[in-house]
Amino acid sequence: MLDIRALRKTFGAVEVLKGIDLKVARQELVFIIGPSGSGKSTLLRCMNRLEEPSDGSIFVDGVDLLSPKTDINLMRRKLGMVFQSFNLYPHKNALGNVTLALRKVLRKSAAEAEAIAMAALDRVGLKEKAGNFPSQLSGGQQQRVAIARAIALEPTVLLFDEPTSALDPELAGSVLAAMGDLKKAGMTMVVVSHEMRFARDFADRVVFMENGEVVQDGPPAVLFGPDAHPRVKAFLSELSH
């Protein structure tokens, strides 16, 4: 489904990604961890070309994402993204945030877009908050609206860029619960996060990155167990202090 090969990204003289290979299968949840500056967010942002990769290739369902012939707007709606800072549209209420792309990109009628949006808000438990503006919602609720905005477009992959890093632990719980529900429903997901418990419970694979390289890629039992790479162990023990 998602096939990344020899991906490189340089910012000026700094090489942030040094040849990443990563495959994500359908319905898989791949969890990316690593110290800050390891390139994990950059990798995620290359997956929908918010950052332009310097070299390498990315295939999404067999389509070459980096080809100039590829319609990036068409591909982006298949690659939903959830941001650390939510990035809801402050001038639109929750429903308006979800319907905008349905109306403008998928050209749905107002009634159809609203029905789809309400179903998406219902999936994240916020049907009752459809009329609220972002400023009237808690951080956890805002992030769930952002998830609804992404899933309403029926993406083939959902990308999460530290979705709970801006939230208090009690608010993060509702977001993680919504993400867990998506995983159970068969959504393909790539998650950059520090929520190790979530990774243990829901990830099919955990990828540890450091200095722009994949150090270890395997099931959670391996990376969180005794057979983890020494650098993974060092990172995890540092994190728990």
């Binding site: 918010l50 707007n73 982006r76 941001f83 549209y89 952002a146 992404a150």
Partner: peptide, 14 residues
């Protein structure tokens, strides 16, 4: 904020 651009472009808007 630039995040508004990114969020909108990520939903496939031009």
């Amino acid at each position: 904020p630039h995040g508004q651009w990114e969020a909108a472009r990520c939903t496939g808007m031009t």
